[in-house]
Design a protein around this nucleic acid. Structure first.
Length: 867
RNA sequence: GGAGUCAUAGCUCAGCGGGAGAGCACCUGCUUCACAGGCAGGGGGUCGGGGGUUCGAAUCCCUCUGACUCCACCA
């Protein structure tokens, strides 16, 4: 006889399972006889450990792929990692700095050697964590964004877009990260509201005729000013246009010009123009052919244009020059304001708009194509709007980064000549661009570059386009959108059929989990304490698609409790199966008791509901069906009922019951395997089974022969009677196991036979002294009577019965029934309802009304007797 | 300034066109031979306010209020 330990021990259960699966080769894809189903992992950065967000993301992917594998697909879950340019380089820099080493002292080559070592180390950590999560990824297909193959894809894409005129190099105002000393794209900048000020300055006119006053939030940029501008229709300023004014505190003169960009009603109506440090001013500068001097260095310190402030940090300079100009009477007013300021997503520093020569992707043709041709189905659908909305208004994408860790831009320069290609052109003197590409440039190709593109590989043909992408809404712009337009451009197809979007993980107080708040939760800590199955179940059942997930330890505990429940129903089953084998499992649908038919009918319904919700990616709903089936139906009722049959002397009865226990439990395990792979594997191994692993066992079938509405209805009658009796026992404080006399007044012949055939069940649950069936029962005040449909339960409780209480209860019941009757009649009297509502609905109401009327009459009669 | 989300039981959330649900918390009984992290019973909600569509609305539409998120170069 097999026996499981009394308590579910997640440590023991999870130990060795992953190795077992790996050894079995179950994660491998490639069975050509099957239809492919592909998910590529969103590649984690090789910067650190996986957090709860990854655990969520990866569990969702793994659930989908495990189910599809069981359903007979050639399931490919392709793993990989992202080099994460800025993030990784920043971390390596930091580590080097702590050792007193600076990147530039090392040189590019040496630095890259260190970076690759770093990658190797972190890739190892990440694989360890995938293992802990239990994700069934095919390691034979693992990729890294800086792999040779992917590098080839990146280069190919760059060259193609360049030749098509969709990649260009130009001087633009870009977002400059003064700490990382690199350009950023627009979406790598987070706008945050901060306290700032409007500083008013006097620009004195050259001819001594007075001054012009401007307001600015960034005084330090005045050293890059090359003009003042006013609106052409602004009467206040006509006389000044054409004159020249001094940049305050300097002897540099700048012209006063007209430009209709100016908003006359804002500020003073006069604006300083700093073409090298502001995107709008840059355009003004171009229109008026103004000089565009930078007044800052790459690290955010001021340059020689700031004369005495040279070398000072931009914010220190702001403070200093404001103070000096105040003293000189040239700063007239300071207004405190709150305004939005761009911060680098990576380093957090205030981004400096800066004129700089960079590479850009021309977005308009690509986004137009994406909007028109994308066939990706977002789940939930509303995220398609998010995607389209962004595609609609996106700016050209700055793709060059002043870093070393990344794909080096395939461009070579010699004087003014530029060559874009795989290799440098023939001849001496060509120098390759020092910069690398934005990390997202390579991530955008991930769904096809990982499968071998640009070569027309077997994998690409077989697994591309991929089936489902799972990711958070926070990277729709960064990644999803770019994958879509690049895929359409280069493969002519959308990169995936479905895109399942999930939200963010928040702490118990609803705050975003972040390093700075220190409120992050390490999935490995949860694994240690509750087990990964618990964490997975928690993560995938506590929010709807696209919604955020609040991390609450109480819910993790309740997930553990559910698994412990499953453990115990398995324990019960195994204790009773004895040496029962898979060959002994036999279900003859012509030879079943009501409870057997009922549990199988419920199983049938549960499989259908679960499948329906799995297909819609509604995992919370899918789990809800299995949860209530296994706990409320199987554990609370069938297991109890089976105890009767298992004690029978009749061998066939015992065998039938064991078969059903084993069969139903096995299906429960399979339905839950995608949620909790470890414990379901453990239990599967103990139960009679065929395949070597639950992972490769077939997904449960909803067998139509099991569908049985009559059984569900009949069993519900039994349950109702039992519940009613339990209820009375509680209400009258009758000890649960104290034997009581039960009289059932049944007139309906079908009800009569159902109850009589299942008398043992009634006895099992109600602890009767005797159960008596009657068609008439003489009035007696010392009894409690519960009136159900077709059945009246009479409990002669003698002294325990309180007539007044009983009258009150029955009157309450009467009121309830009257309410119901009124409702039914109201609906049925409404001609519109009868004519417009579906027939089955109308019939349903009629049936209910009949039943209520009958119950009402019986209750009223009983009440009359009492009075 | 645009776009979107949320408002349902004390808490956290499902449900999203046909009679209000779960988990946790709370109250009352239980050492019932799988489980006391369990079993049985119970209390608790005019489903944010107001309109509309519909035979029927928590569910669809409009509007208001409150919370949040993303996008956006007004100095």
């Amino acid at each position: 006889m097999k026996e499981l330990p009394k308590k579910y021990d997640h440590h023991k259960v999870e130990e060795g399972k992953y190795e077992f699966w790996l050894d079995g080769g179950y994660f491998k894809s490639g069975d050509k006889t099957k239809e492919p189903y592909t998910i590529v992992i969103p590649p984690p950065n090789v910067t650190g450990k996986l957090h709860l967000g990854h655990a969520w993301d990866n569990t969702l992917q793994d659930m989908i792929i495990r189910r599809k594998r069981m359903q007979g697909y050639d399931a490919l879950y392709l793993p990989g990692m992202d080099h994460a340019g800025i993030a990784t380089q920043a971390k390596i820099d930091e580590k080097l700095r702590s050792q007193g080493i600076f990147r530039h002292e090392l040189g590019r080559e040496k630095f890259l050697e260190i970076a690759w070592d770093w990658k190797k180390e972190y890739a190892g950590h990440i694989r360890e964590q995938w293992k802990a999560l239990g994700v069934s990824v095919d390691y034979d297909k693992e990729r890294f964004t800086l792999d040779e193959g992917l590098n080839k894809a990146v280069t190919e894409v760059f060259i193609h877009l360049y030749e098509k005129g969709l990649i260009y190099r130009g001087e633009r105002i870009i977002n400059w990260d003064v700490e990382a000393k690199t350009a950023l794209s627009n979406i790598e900048v987070d706008h945050k509201e901060v306290q700032g000020a409007f500083y008013y300055f006097k620009y004195e006119l050259e001819d001594g005729s007075g001054f012009l006053e401007i307001a600015t939030t960034r005084p330090e940029t005045m050293y890059g000013d090359t003009a003042l501008m006013v609106h052409p229709e602004d009467d206040r300023y006509h006389e000044y246009v054409g004159k020249r004014a001094y940049i305050p505190g300097t002897d540099r003169l700048i012209p006063v010009i007209y430009d209709d960009y100016v908003d006359m009603d804002f500020g003073t109506g006069c604006v300083k123009v700093t073409p090298a440090h502001d995107p709008n001013d840059f355009e003004v500068g171009q229109r008026h052919d103004l000089p565009m001097p930078l007044c800052m260095n790459e690290d955010g310190t001021m340059n020689h244009l700031a004369h005495k402030y040279e070398g000072m940090d931009r914010f220190a300079c702001r403070k200093a020059c404001v103070k000096d100009l105040q003293e000189a009477g040239l700063c007239t007013k300071i207004e405190q304001i709150t305004h939005n300021v761009g911060h680098s997503q990576r380093t957090g520093v205030v981004v400096e708009p800066r004129l700089s020569k960079q590479w850009f992707v021309k977005m308009e043709p690509l986004s137009k194509q994406a909007v028109e041709k994308s066939t990706v189905q977002f789940v939930p659908a509303r995220f398609e709007k998010t995607f389209l909305h962004w595609m609609d208004g996106t700016f050209d994408w700055c793709i060059s980064r002043q870093l070393w860790w990344g794909h080096r831009i395939p461009a070579w320069y010699k004087g003014d000549d530029v060559h874009v290609g795989y290799d440098a052109p023939e001849g001496d003197g060509w120098k390759q661009d020092e910069d690398v590409l934005d990390t997202w440039f390579s991530s955008a190709l991930w769904p096809f570059s990982t499968l071998g593109w640009p070569d027309d590989t077997d994998d690409l043909k077989r697994y591309y386009p991929t089936t489902t992408m799972v990711t958070g809404y926070d990277i729709i712009f960064f990644w999803v959108a770019r994958m879509i337009f690049q895929a359409l451009e280069f493969t002519g197809e959308s990169p995936f059929e479905y895109c399942l979007i999930h939200g963010l993980i928040r702490d118990a107080d609803g705050r975003k989990m972040s390093k700075s708040l220190g409120n992050g939760v390490d999935p490995m800590d949860i694994k240690e304490e509750y087990g990964m199955d618990t964490l997975r179940y928690f993560l995938t059942t506590n929010s709807a698609p696209g919604m955020d997930l609040r991390f609450e330890i109480e819910k993790v505990e309740s997930s553990w409790n559910f698994i412990n429940k499953l453990w115990n129903i398995s324990r019960f089953t195994l204790m009773n199966l004895g040496d029962f084998t898979i060959d002994d499992v036999e279900i003859d649908t012509d030879d079943l008791t009501l409870s057997d038919r009922w549990i199988l009918a419920r199983l049938y319904e549960t499989i259908n509901e679960t499948d329906y919700n799995y297909e819609k990616f509604e995992f919370g709903e899918a789990a809800k069906s299995v949860h209530s089936f296994s706990w409320d139906d199987f554990a609370s009722w069938y297991v109890e009922v089976s105890k009767i049959a298992l004690q029978s002397d009749d061998e066939a009865t015992v065998k039938r019951t064991k078969s059903i226990l084993a069969y139903v439990l096995l299906d429960i395990m399979k339905l839950l395997h995608p949620f909790m792979p470890f414990v379901t594997e453990e239990i599967y191994q103990q139960l009679p089974h065929i395949e070597d692993s639950i992972m490769i066992s077939p997904w449960p079938d909803a067998i139509e022969e099991f569908e049985d509405a009559q059984a569900i209805q009949d069993f519900a009658r039994i349950q109702d009677i039992i519940k009613a009796i339990r209820n009375v026992r509680a209400e009258y404080n009758v000890a649960p196991a104290k034997p009581i006399h039960i009289v059932l007044k049944v007139t309906d012949p079908h009800a009569q036979s159902v109850l009589q055939e299942n008398l043992a069940i009634l006895e099992r649950f109600t602890y009767p002294e005797a159960i008596e069936f009657v068609t008439e029962y003489s009035s007696d005040n010392e009894l409690v009577s519960i009136i159900l449909k077709d059945v009246e339960i009479i409990l002669p409780l003698g002294d325990l019965v309180d007539i007044a209480q009983e009258i009150a209860r029955l009157e309450g019941e009467l009121r309830r029934l009257e309410g119901e009757i009124k409702r039914c009649e109201g609906m049925l009297k409404n001609p519109n309802f009868v004519s417009k509502a579906p027939d089955f609905k109308v019939q349903q109401e009629r049936d209910k009304l009949a039943a209520y009327n009958e119950q009402h009459a019986t209750t009223k009669a009983r009440l009359a007797e009492l009075k």
